[in-house]
């Protein structure tokens, strides 16, 4: 249930309680009843107070939800630290590639492969939405430059969010990689698919982990082997300033492009996973807070209503008794 709706329900319930306690007519009660279906059933025409049983049920369900959100927060918090270490360690793998081959998100290529990375599970705040937003902007830019676009989507959430609008651009969808702890093997299996589909440049969009409360949507660019060769010829990267032993430049750059895809993918998955945990921790904390606020208000409502019912019954008994006394 959304927070706003819950609060509206509470407001209605309180309004009704106050309307009846000052002797409001049932017609006014009837008006408010139509606005909220849940508590309305507990509050039929002519009944003065909100049903205690229903409030009690609501309190129970709210506290159960709070237990779940608290547990989810604890789980995310305990997984965060190892994931963070992994992500930060993996940065050391990609920086040398950027130093050697450069980061060229604006490289003009005939074909562009978009790779939005998202989580497989929800309830983790806005991180997946951010990736999708950035990807959509990149798609527009690529369309303007008349580059042919295809997409390899990683993670179930981005698939769900993007399928309706740009589903026809999908080439491959890779999900459930987060089911097991991330390994370089998994990352490189995904990267292999990406490298296969990459016939120009691949733009990998993910959330870079900054701190437990801050994640930056980031674009990592990987060119194909041929594009790296072109940019080496145009002196856009420093490859030719090194003396290397081994196969010719084309083959070497092909190997490097593939390995870079793997390294970038590993880094991006690790960072995104860490951001997911951080974001989940944060959103579950605020959910728990909302639940406890709600519980407080419901408890107040419950106690007030109970008190009001007792008072009314007492008045009835006393006035009945005094009426009998008068009759004597």
């Amino acid at each position: 249930m959304s927070r706003n709706r819950a609060f509206r329900l509470l407001k209605d319930a309180r309004l009704r309680a106050s309307a009846t306690s000052v002797g409001g007519t049932s017609s006014r009660v009837g008006q408010t009843v139509t606005r909220s279906a849940d508590l309305a059933s507990a509050h039929p025409e002519g009944v003065r107070h909100v049903s205690l049983q229903i409030v009690q049920q609501r309190m129970k369900s709210v506290s159960n939800i709070q237990k779940i959100t608290k547990a989810m927060k604890m789980v995310a918090a305990s997984r965060l630290k190892p994931a963070q270490d992994k992500a930060i360690a993996s940065r050391g793998m990609v920086t040398p590639f950027y130093k050697l081959l450069g980061d060229l998100p604006g490289a003009e290529t005939a074909k562009t492969l978009m790779v939005p990375i998202s989580s497989d599970k929800g309830l983790c705040g806005g991180i997946n939405g951010n990736v999708v937003k950035v990807s959509n902007v990149l798609l527009e830019t690529a369309k303007d430059k008349e580059s042919e676009i295809s997409m390899d989507v990683i993670g179930d959430k981005a698939r769900g969010l993007m399928q309706r609008q740009v589903g026809e651009l999908f080439a491959n969808v890779l999900v459930d990689a987060t089911k097991q702890p991330l390994t370089f093997g998994t990352a490189s299996a995904l990267a292999e698919q990406v490298a296969k589909d990459n016939e120009g440049k691949a733009l990998i969009v993910y959330n870079r982990f900054v701190s437990a409360i801050s994640f930056k949507p980031t674009i990592a660019t990987v060119l194909s082997g041929e594009e790296y060769e072109k940019s080496a010829e145009n002196l856009e990267n420093k490859f030719d300033s090194y003396e290397v032993e081994g196969p010719d430049r084309g083959e070497f750059l092909l190997d490097l492009a593939e390995f870079k895809t793997g390294a970038v993918m590993y880094n991006a998955l690790a960072e995104n996973n860490t951001s997911e945990l951080g974001s989940r921790m944060q959103s579950m904390e605020s959910s728990s807070k909302n639940a406890s606020e709600m519980l407080q208000k419901l408890t107040l409502l419950y106690n007030r209503t109970r008190q009001a019912a007792i008072t009314t019954e007492l008045i009835e008994i006393i006035s009945g008794a005094s009426a009998l006394e008068d009759a004597k």
């Binding site: 399928q163 969808v173 890779l174 097991q180």
Partner: peptide, 26 residues
């Protein structure tokens, strides 16, 4: 040895509609 593990599910899309999913597991 735990780092040998690989798991993911790949679905190929043709013109916006998914084909059968392939699970890769090591």
């Amino acid at each position: 040895r735990a780092r040998d593990a690989v798991y993911f599910k790949a679905t190929k899309y043709v013109k916006g509609s998914p084909e059968a999913a392939v699970i890769t597991e090591v």
